[in-house]
Design a protein around this nucleic acid. Sequence first.
DNA 1: TTGAAAGCGCTAACAA
DNA 2: TTGTTAGCGCTTTCAA
Lengths: 316, 316
Amino acid sequence: MRIVAAAERLGYRPNATARALAQGRANAIGVVVNNLDLIGHTNIYFLEVFGGVIEGALAAGQITVVFTLRDWDEAAQRIPAFCDRRVDGLILIAPMLKQGAADWMPAHAGFVSVHGNCAIPGVVNLESDEEAGAFDMVSHMLALGHRRILHVGGPVGATGAERRIAGYLRAHAAAGVEPPPGHVLRASFSEEGGRVALQDWLLRHRGSPLPEAVFGANDAIAMGCIDVLHARRLRVPADVSVVGFDDTLLARSARIATVQQPLHDLGSQAVRVLMDRIDSIQDGRNWHGQDNIVLPTTIVPRATLAAPRRKTLVID
Amino acid sequence: MRIVAAAERLGYRPNATARALAQGRANAIGVVVNNLDLIGHTNIYFLEVFGGVIEGALAAGQITVVFTLRDWDEAAQRIPAFCDRRVDGLILIAPMLKQGAADWMPAHAGFVSVHGNCAIPGVVNLESDEEAGAFDMVSHMLALGHRRILHVGGPVGATGAERRIAGYLRAHAAAGVEPPPGHVLRASFSEEGGRVALQDWLLRHRGSPLPEAVFGANDAIAMGCIDVLHARRLRVPADVSVVGFDDTLLARSARIATVQQPLHDLGSQAVRVLMDRIDSIQDGRNWHGQDNIVLPTTIVPRATLAAPRRKTLVID
DNA sequence: TTGAAAGCGCTAACAA
DNA sequence: TTGTTAGCGCTTTCAA
C-alpha cells in the first residue's frame, strides 16, 4: 500500500519493546559472566565462548544481552532480576552455582550453562570432555617416553581442574605407569598461579630429578611455568616439555602444545539448545532434549612438546 | 505494606519491557562491532574495548546489548534497525563508516564511536592519540641509537595506520634524522600480514643492511615479524629490536615492547559520554559536550627492544 | 496522600 | 480479506 511506502519514507521503525510486551517474547538471549573473568583478561577462555554465543545468536535471529556478576555469590539475588522479560533465556558461562540454585531460578526463562560446575535441575549443561582431553594428552606424553610428568593443576573445587587431574591419573593407569608421587600441584588458573606453584615446588625439591614434562591445567598456567623454566635457563622443550589446556589465543600465539576445547562451538551450540528450551517453555511443553551435552576435545601438539631428554637433570 | 511483602514472596519481577515502553527509555546501550573482528580472534583489540564498555555500563546501571555486523557496508541498513527502542544509544567500535552516515542515522538514539575513521555529525568520537604514541616510540628508538627502523605499517586507508606512519615520520624529523628510503611497508593488521610483508621485503633487499629495528603497526604484525626473524636465526633484540602497538594480550604475554592504548578506558568512557548524549536527546537539549575526545598513549618498553648492535648485519 | 484512568506501540483475537 | 478493539504491564497524569 501507499501507507507502507510513506512509513518507509518517514523512517518508521517498529518499536521492539512494544512488540516484546505484546507477544511476551523479547527475541533476545542473555549471557551471564563473571565480571572479573571478562575484565581481567585472565581468561581469554570466556571471550572465545562469548564469540560463539554472539555468532549463534546472530544465526538464530536473536540479540545478545550481556549481564555481569561481580561474583557468583550474587547469582541468587541478581539472576532472577535479569529475567525481567527483556530476554527469553540465559546462558551461564562457567557458573560456580551452588546446588540449591534451582530454588530461586525463575521458571519463565530458559537456562543453559556452559561448563557448569554442578548439575541443576532444569538447566541444560554443555561441556567438553576435559577428562578425556587430559587423558589423551598425558597418554601421548607417556607414549613419547615421559615418565616424570608434573601436573600443575587448577584450584581445588573447580570441576574442570578435578577432571584434568582424573585424566592425568587414568592415563598413567592405562599405560601401566605409576604416577610419580607428589607430582600433582594446585594453582589458580593464571600465569601468576602457574609461576608461583612451579617455583615453589622446585624450591622444595632441590636435588630431586627434574620433571621431564609439565602439564599445566590451562594455557595461562603453562605460560607461567615456561617463564619459570626460562628463568632457570632451562630450555623448552629440549630440557623440559610443557603443555597447556584450552587452546586459547595464548597457546596459539606462544605456540604452546595444548588440549583444544571447542570453545566457540560450545557457545554457538549453547544458543541453539537455549532456543529449543525457550520454545518448549513458551509452548508449555516439557523439555525433551538432553540435559548434559558433551563435546569432544583434541590434543594439539606444538613446539613445546618433544620426547624427553636422555639424561635426567637435577633440580637446583 | 503487606502487598510488597506478598509480591516479594510470590517472586514478582517488574517487567522491564513494559517499563521501557511506558517511559520511552530502555536503560540499555548497544555495542556495534564487526562480526569478523569478534569471531576471528584477530583483534583482541575489540575485546579489550568491549570489556571497558561492559564495565562502564555496569557502573551506569545500563545493560549492554551486542549487535554484530558482518561488514560495515551493512551499517546503513542495519544500524537504523538496531535503534528499535530496545537501546537508548549505540557505541560503534572502530566503525569504517562512510562520510554520508549522518543521513541515515536515526535522531532518537545517541551515537558514540570509538576510533571512528571519519567525523560524522552528531556522533561523538573517542580515540587515543596514535600519532603521538608512534612519535614517542620512534623517538625513543632513535634516542637508543637506532637509525634503520623499518615500519611495517597497517593497510592503506585505515586511519590508525596512517597516523602511526605520521608519527614515525615526525619522530625522524624532530630528531633531525632522514628516514631510510623504502622503510615503510603496508600489511594487514594480523600476524600473517606482518609475516608476509617482512619476509617479502627481506627477499627484495638481499645484500642491503639489515634494519636495526622493526616497528609493527600493531602487536600482531610485530609478532609475525618476530617469527620471520627467528626463522632466519636472528635474535630479538640482540640482532634486531621489534616493537608493536596496542598493548593487547598478545604483547603482554609475548613480552613485546609496544605502545599502550587505553583500550579499556576508551570503552568505559564511551559509555559515560553516551549516557550524557542520551540524556541530552531525551531532554530535548542540544549537545554541549566535546565531539572528539582524545586519550593519551604510553610507550611500554619490554624485552624485545634494546640498543642497536654495534656491527651492521646484511640481509641474506 | 491515595486511587483511578489514560496512554506507551504493538499483537492477536474478533467482527464485519 | 480487511478493519476494529482489547489487552500486554508498566508510568504518569489527573481527580478525588
